[in-house]
Simulated scan of single mutants.
Amino acid sequence: MNTQLTGKIALVTGSNAGIGRGVALLLAANGAKVGVTYLNNKEQGEETVALIRQAGGQAELFQADVTDLGEIDRLVSDVEKAFDGTVDILVNNAGHMVKRVPTAEMTEDMYDKVLNVNFKSTVFMCKRVLPGMKSKGAGRIVNMSSVAAHNGGGPGSGIYAASKAAVTAYSKNLAKEVAGHGITVNLVSPGFIGQTAFHATFTTDEGRKATVNGIPLQREGTPDDVAGAVLYLVSDLAAYLTGETIEINGGMFMR
């Protein structure tokens, strides 16, 4: 068994930058044909595709709002048309805290935005690719949780943390539901991953230093740290693993 994905079609949501880009690059380096997606920043998406192609890989760029069911359907259809086949690997990376908001200030609109981008998108992306995976009798789905799902997250991130906990519980149920079709469903749960827009937006320099000081490995994680775990989960090496969560946090949270 190895990590080669030659001939496999992979769709990585939110892969124009950060963790998603790291995942897309590594899957492509191991032979997958990768659908790179973005919501707003087309330039970053084009850069990701260019990096893959420069390294000899195959990738195409797609724009989609994965909180919209019509756009989810269009996205998957476009990927299947571009690569002439159904999706073998789905990585639901798209997600966002949107804004730090304490419960006393939470609005229904903000609640909906956070749940939709993190949880709704995951559920309906999974639903859309399942028919193709079932027809092949094989498939790999990796969903994105967070250390916040376990510890509740930082100030003003309660709904974000809850949405990631929902992703975790849902993924375990889905793993049971589709196991008989040869499909595995697993999660990666990043801790403090630097080089991402998330921490550039929501974490102060003081908070960053304090967090790193509390990490046993004494460094921030990188998108490549997450990508390596995703590659393992979608490869033959993890053929007997489903419904599991890999914690990627340098030891800051151990189960």
Rank of each mutant, 00 (worst) to 15 (best):
106 M>V: 09
220 E>V: 11
11 L>I: 12
152 G>R: 01
120 K>H: 13
224 D>M: 13
219 R>T: 15
246 I>E: 05
192 F>V: 10
64 A>S: 10
104 A>K: 10
19 I>P: 07
173 N>R: 09
52 I>D: 08
202 F>G: 03
112 D>V: 05
28 A>D: 05
3 T>S: 12
127 K>A: 07
202 F>W: 11
37 T>F: 09
176 K>P: 00
101 V>I: 06
196 T>S: 13
37 T>G: 12
84 D>H: 14
176 K>W: 08
48 T>V: 14
213 N>C: 08
229 A>C: 15
180 G>F: 10
24 A>G: 09
194 G>M: 10
204 T>L: 14
57 G>W: 10
5 L>D: 01
131 P>L: 15
201 T>M: 02
149 A>E: 00
122 T>Q: 05
226 V>Q: 08
200 A>G: 05
136 K>L: 03
163 S>L: 02
19 I>E: 13
9 I>F: 03
200 A>D: 13
88 D>Q: 02
184 T>S: 12
179 A>Y: 01
255 R>V: 03
28 A>R: 09
248 I>Q: 12
223 P>E: 05
71 E>S: 15
195 Q>C: 05
138 A>I: 04
210 A>L: 15
173 N>L: 14
63 Q>Y: 01
112 D>G: 00
70 G>C: 11
98 V>D: 01
12 V>W: 00
255 R>W: 03
